[in-house]
Amino acid sequence: MTPLAGRCALVTGASRGIGAEIAVSLAQNGAAVAVNYSGSRVKAEEVVSRIAHIGGSAFAVQASVGDAKGVQTLFAELSSRSFEPDILVNNAGITKDNLFMRLSDEDFESVIAVNLKGAIFCTKQALPNMIKRGYGKIINISSVVGYSGNAGQANYSASKGALSAFSRSCAVEFGAFGIRVNTVAPGFIETDMTAALPEDVKLGMLKSIPLGRAGSAEEVANAVLWLASPISDYITGQSIHVNGGMYLQ
């Protein structure tokens, strides 16, 4: 089954973790995938190889999404390859966790730049072609903490709450053009990002999850795949929580 055959997907921050699994999953289902990375070229090439190995089509492309010019260059490069994304997954994200009182201006601003402005810049660049085609799927990867708040993550939770709200307004603004905009909000997922958490924090989190375990990046990718596929064409402006029951809407 290749529900995404003929589709082009750009996944930002796809060199590892959740982004990498999303890229593989979309490619496995027929989409050609642009694997965006910021610094880890080798990792991004590994994802491209993984995809080639399962008979999919992908290439790696560098850009720091928090920089508007970088995003412009990224889309110019995609365009030169005649690669016009019909699926955009705004996944690139960074954390700079600290107690609220200890967050510097830079800690706050840099997280907003990548996690929120990066998604805004990419969405702006991807929209014209989606509008021309009258079809598009934009999937923003938020986080449970954008809904629940989380001590030590004032910057990250603000960026993710903002991204979810951005997503809702985009769904309203671009629905008439056939563009679906949704949010996937992962809970506690086993990735490099969460591996860095102290053991006691991890144990505390597990206690708050009814299913009693962390999720996998692949389980997040499954939700993204569904939202990217035509079978979810009547879904827009929604948040899909992949969190084992950790936070209930």
């Binding site: 107690l99 903490v145 954008g146 809904y147 708040g149 939770s157 603000a158 960026s159 307004s169």
Partner: peptide
């Protein structure tokens, strides 16, 4: 879109600060 994003960010920030 951008205006609502800024407010959604404040809503999440509010919840984190309440916790901290």
């Amino acid at each position: 879109t951008v205006f609502s994003a800024s407010l959604g960010g404040v809503a999440a920030l509010t919840k984190t600060l309440a916790r901290e």
